[in-house]
């Protein structure tokens, strides 16, 4: 019984995450529009876009290989696999043992690998440019990401999300500078990984500094829809990860309906807050020059490393 229940919660959670992802993207852009005194296209617009794209015919370049054709499926699948591992509503879901945080990051890296290959497949200058930049910046983001995971796992002695969440729930709330540093680093990395301002502009489709969109230029129809959807899932995944790691309060411990519904409400509320903050940040900031991005990422690394040092300096020594 309880196994069945937790499996159904797992399924519910995965489907919810995937279905909400476009809404979240719409929510962020609507918030941004309101902040910029525009009306915006509405929260549902990404859904409408996806529906339209799914119905359209696919046009592909003559010499595109199977990499280009199957990359959208691989990207979407890997992202969705990662998304179903992250506990959003309940800890200790059946799939949560499948991958710990590091494996989760690696699944996303797999998606990125194929995305970049697809960018190279057509042989346009834009595709190669996007692939080159995406791989470069994600490589620089990786050590900072790992370092902040390191800081977080120091307390819990674990990289399993469930154990980490339980650890945070079970320790008394107190000010831990190291966690604050790790949070700051993680937020910076999350912005970079999702191609948000100040690294990349998600709303641009044709400018010389674009990264993510440059790789997608040749895609159309359902392939484009899958790629877009995958990046929306990635955004909500990172948001959930931040919520899980830093403010997990409210997540359900068992698969009872009341707890799960409550956890769902909490989760949505936290996501909404996070996305409003994201919209605020994106409105308030300008995009960085391309070659200032490494500095931004190294700042994230320094922050995470400071978290590590302060952990030993201030928290262990006591």
């Amino acid at each position: 019984m309880s196994v069945m229940a937790s499996i159904s919660v797992q399924l519910f959670q995965a489907v919810l995450l995937v279905l909400i992802a476009p809404l979240a993207a719409g929510f962020v852009s609507t918030c941004k529009a309101r902040l910029q005194n525009r009306r915006g296209a509405g929260v549902l617009q990404p859904w409408r876009d996806l529906r339209k794209l799914f119905a359209k015919e696919v046009v592909m370049a003559e010499h595109a290989s199977w990499i280009f054709r199957f990359a959208p499926y691989i990207v979407f699948t890997a992202t969705m696999m990662a998304a179903s591992v992250v506990p959003a509503l309940m800890v200790d879901t059946p799939l949560s043992l499948t991958a710990d945080v590091i494996a989760l990051v690696a699944l996303l890296a797999l998606a990125r690998f194929f995305l970049a290959l697809a960018g190279m497949d057509i042989g346009t200058a834009f595709g190669g440019m996007g692939a080159s930049r995406e791989m470069t910046f994600s490589a620089l983001a990786e050590p900072a990401m790992l370092m902040s995971i390191f800081v977080l796992s120091l307390g819990a002695h674990s990289t399993n999300l469930t154990t980490m969440i339980n650890h945070t729930l079970n320790t008394p709330v107190m000010m831990q500078p190291s966690i604050a540093f790790a949070l700051a680093a993680m937020v910076m990395i999350a912005m970079a990984e999702n191609g948000r301002i100040p690294i990349d502009n998600p709303n641009t489709h044709l400018e010389l500094t674009m990264i993510h969109e440059a790789m997608l230029l040749e895609y159309s129809g359902r392939h484009l829809a899958l790629m877009e959807w995958a990046s929306q899932i990635k955004l909500i995944l990172f948001a959930t990860l931040l919520v899980d790691l830093f403010v997990p309060w409210g997540i359900a411990a068992h698969a009872d309906p009341g707890g799960v519904v409550l956890a769902c409400v909490f989760w949505l509320f936290k996501l909404a807050v996070l996305f409003v903050l994201l919209a605020l940040a994106e409105t308030g900031m300008a995009k960085l020059r391309l070659f200032e991005v490494p500095e931004y990422l190294s700042a994230a690394f320094v922050l995470a490393f400071l978290g590590l040092i302060t952990h030993y300096m201030l928290e262990v020594a006591v």
Binding site: A109, M120, I122, G123, G128, A139, P143
Partner: peptide, 17 residues
């Protein structure tokens, strides 16, 4: 991560395009 970047380059330049 840099190795991944490098092999995107290798595979992309040698086999794709």
């Amino acid at each position: 991560a840099l190795a991944a970047a490098c092999f995107v380059k290798v595979f992309g330049v040698v086999f794709l395009g």
